[in-house]
Design a protein around this nucleic acid. Structure first.
Length: 287
DNA sequence: CTCAGCTCCTGCGGGC
DNA sequence: TGCCCGCAGGAGCTGA
């Protein structure tokens, strides 16, 4: 599912179609996703130029030239499909012809440059909102987010402080977007495996050296996934509409019963359920 | 404050 | 072939 690396990949895929470009018309094919769209969203966006396309955690932020920013969250099953961008722009990457509007195409960006960007989201856990660019940090969905795991403010001391005294399993703590932003179920499992930490271990009972290792594991896991073009599950596609996006190999996620990838480890990957979600781990490598 | 559990939604795969 | 059920999960919400 779209976690930080997938959202970053989508953002990068959208750049040629959207950044610096004018949204000639925003077409809303329903009135809400997870929440109702803000009043007059189509009118407030139509005709605006996207000055910058940024990412914060799992949110894509489009700063418009009218003082407002569009927030986009892909939820679980949201994807962006680009068509109609001049082939010369990015050779061979995009459908040139506009395909028929598909089921679950809820929002369509008709770009002045001829491109069409469709937001397709079967499960409708996604969201869109408009907010003053100057006040973006106060947006309810952004205000309490923790640091970007790939940014300078994310380091072992911060994680130590936020884990201190907490009895909650480290798995749940890392999924808590207030502690660190952008991780989801897949990359938490992967980072814990890399760091050799059991998903059930209490967050407050991880030693300093192991927190250091966890910090590095989180960074490495995310960086590799971004480099690989993000990774995802079956109903997800790259921003350019191409399939074949989910080639990324996970070490534990989704590998229940398969051999642990560590050299000479005799264990098989196990699956447990923590707060309703699957955790995959190796009982020998993770303590 | 912390934490576990529930909820939204649809598509898919397994079992019969 | 069709139906039912469980599962996938981001993140807000509720209640203990």
């Amino acid at each position: 599912m779209p976690e930080l690396p997938e959202v970053e990949t989508v953002r990068q895929g959208l750049l040629p179609a959207m950044e610096g470009e004018v949204i000639a018309r925003l077409e809303l094919r329903r009135a809400d996703l997870r929440w109702p769209f803000p009043p007059d969203m189509a009118a407030r966006v139509s005709g605006a130029r996207v000055m910058q396309l940024r990412r914060r955690s799992k949110y894509i932020l489009a700063d418009l030239d009218r003082g407002e920013s569009l927030l986009i969250h892909l939820g679980m099953s949201g994807r962006m499909v680009i068509s109609g961008l001049a082939a010369a722009h990015v050779p061979g990457q995009f459908h040139f012809e506009h395909p028929a509007v598909e089921k679950h195409d809820h929002v369509i960006f008709h770009m002045a440059n001829g491109a069409r960007v469709s937001f397709n989201d079967p499960r409708r856990f996604g969201a869109m909102d408009l907010w003053s660019t100057d006040q973006l940090a106060t947006h309810p969905l952004l205000a309490s987010l923790g640091p970007e795991p790939l940014g300078n403010s994310f380091h072992a001391d911060l994680l130590k402080a936020r884990f201190a005294g907490r009895k909650t399993p480290v798995k749940a703590a890392l999924l808590d977007q207030r502690i660190v932003a952008g991780l989801g179920n897949i990359y938490v499992c992967e980072a814990l495996f890399r760091a050799g930490i059991h998903p059930r271990r209490a967050a407050g009972r991880i030693g300093p050296a192991r927190i250091e290792a966890l910090t590095e594991a989180i960074r490495a896991t995310l960086q590799e996934a971004i480099a690989a073009g993000g990774s995802s599950l079956r109903d997800y596609r790259q921003a350019n509409g191409e399939l074949g996006y989910f080639q990324h190999a996970f070490r534990v996620y989704g590998r229940e019963g398969a051999a642990c990838v560590s050299a000479n480890c005799p264990e098989t990957v196990r699956r447990i359920v923590q707060s309703g979600r699957s955790s995959f781990y190796c009982a020998a490598c993770q303590r």
